[in-house]
Structure formats: structure tokens, C-alpha cells
Nucleic acid binder design. Structure first.
Length: 224
DNA sequence: TCATTAAATTGTT
DNA sequence: AACAATTTAATGA
């Protein structure tokens, strides 16, 4: 069973649970290591878990109705996803891949449904999260319609810093330019060039093996 | 603590 | 995709 204090480190929602609920959650979860470039789940999977990133970095690949990949969303440690498909008991509509060696937490569907039925705190968290995700998907329309390379880059980075979906300590994230490329669907060269552009405008700072966001507000509007 | 080396990442073509 | 330059991490004196 997962130690309570460790759970807090990657599950912000654990704060909202009462003692017995927390106990139930810890029993219904497992954490597993996924090596770089391995899939956490595939489109069409039915065995359902609510899924969270403990360490590393995951990439969600959205699939259009025609079955083609349309966009990617990066999920840093502390991010949870899959509540929609667990709630509706539907097959997954997306792939999830570990971009680097990662630890992934899985909560089994029975536990998820129990919390959904019994925990006020858990539901408060879910509403907040689903609402935030809705805004995210609306933004995705603009992303496809009118954004060029630097715009896409800015959006993808800004999304990693969504304070509701991915509560994080500070403005820094460890991520290579190659990983940013995989998330935004751009080549590493284009990423490198455009990161410099964003840096020149004072939106972020390019570091070795990471970036620090200086102006999240402007970054999330860039190009729009 | 410092020097050396290997590995990873960045920057450029 | 290839290559050079830079940064970091690991090793051992």
C-alpha cells in the first residue's frame, strides 16, 4: 500500500479526502515503472484505471474520429487523467506514452467509483479538474486553426504549467528540447530556434535540460 | 577538492 | 540527419 505522505507528493486530491477515504484510495492504487518510450495505455483499451504521473513525463496523444493523431498533451508529475473514460466506462480515445523513464500510478475502477459515490472531497476535485480540462479542449480548437510553430510551442509549454491540472512548486520544469518537440509535434531544431525567440521576448528562460517560465500569462496567449 | 572522462543536451548547418 | 560545442554527472587521485 502506498504510504500516505508519499501519496500527497503526487496526488493533490489526497488533501481533500477524509481518513477512511484516503485509506480506501491507498489500497486501490499501484505504482509501476514505465521505461522511456513505452506505452502506458492504448486507444481502445477497456481495462480502466484512473492514471497519475508520479515521476517522469507522459504524453497523451489525442485521436480524432478518423483515427489519426491530432495533438499531444504533456503530463508532468502530479497530473491525473482518464476520469472521463472511467466514469463513462468507455474505451480510451487516446494513447499515453512515457516520454522518459517514469513512474505511473493507477487507481482501479472499483476504487474510483467508490470514491465518486462516497467522497465529497473527491468530487470537488473532479469537478474542478473536468472543468479545467473543458477549457483546455476549447483552446485546442484555436491551437489547430491559427497557430504557427512558435505559437504551438508556447501553448504546449504553458499547458504544462496549468495550476489546476498540474499543481507544481515553481516556474521551472526539467524537460529537454527533444521532449518539447515530441509534445508539440515539432522537430528539435525548430524547438531550439523558437525557444530562443520566446526567450528573447522575455517569456521564459532556456536552461540546460529545462526551462523556467517568466511570464505564464503572456506565454499562454502568445500568437493568439 | 580537483582533474579527467563519459554521457547527455544544446546549438547549428 | 549529422556534427560540433557546451553542460552535467561520475569517477578516482
Amino acid at each position: 500500500m502506498i504510504p500516505a505522505e508519499q501519496l500527497q507528493s503526487f496526488a493533490d486530491w489526497a488533501r481533500d479526502l477524509k481518513e477512511d477515504e484516503l485509506e480506501r484510495a491507498r489500497k486501490g492504487m499501484t505504482v509501476k515503472a514505465y521505461p522511456k518510450r513505452t506505452y502506458v495505455c492504448h486507444v481502445g483499451d477497456r481495462l480502466e484505471h484512473w492514471t497519475g504521473v508520479v515521476s517522469g513525463l507522459a504524453k497523451i496523444g489525442l485521436i480524432s474520429s478518423s483515427g489519426k493523431a491530432t495533438a499531444f498533451i504533456g503530463v508532468p508529475p502530479g497530473g491525473w487523467f482518464g476520469e472521463g473514460t472511467v466514469l463513462k466506462r468507455e474505451p480510451r480515445r487516446y494513447d499515453v506514452m512515457a516520454l522518459r523513464d517514469s513512474e505511473i500510478a493507477m487507481m482501479n475502477a472499483a476504487t474510483f467509483h467508490w470514491l465518486f459515490e462516497n467522497s465529497v472531497g473527491f468530487n470537488r476535485f473532479l469537478v474542478r479538474q473536468i472543468n479545467e480540462r473543458l477549457g483546455h479542449f476549447i483552446a485546442l480548437a484555436e491551437y489547430h486553426r491559427l497557430l504557427d510553430a512558435p505559437g504551438r510551442l508556447a501553448r504546449n509549454i504553458a499547458w504544462l504549467f496549468n495550476p489546476v491540472l498540474y499543481p507544481r512548486l515553481g516556474p521551472h520544469i526539467d524537460i529537454t528540447q527533444e521532449e518539447i518537440g515530441e509534445l508539440s509535434g515539432l522537430s528539435r531544431q525548430i524547438v531550439n530556434k523558437n525557444l530562443k525567440v520566446l526567450e528573447g521576448e522575455g517569456l521564459l528562460r532556456v536552461e540546460h535540460g529545462g526551462i523556467t517560465v517568466l511570464d505564464l500569462e503572456r506565454l499562454s496567449r502568445y500568437g493568439g
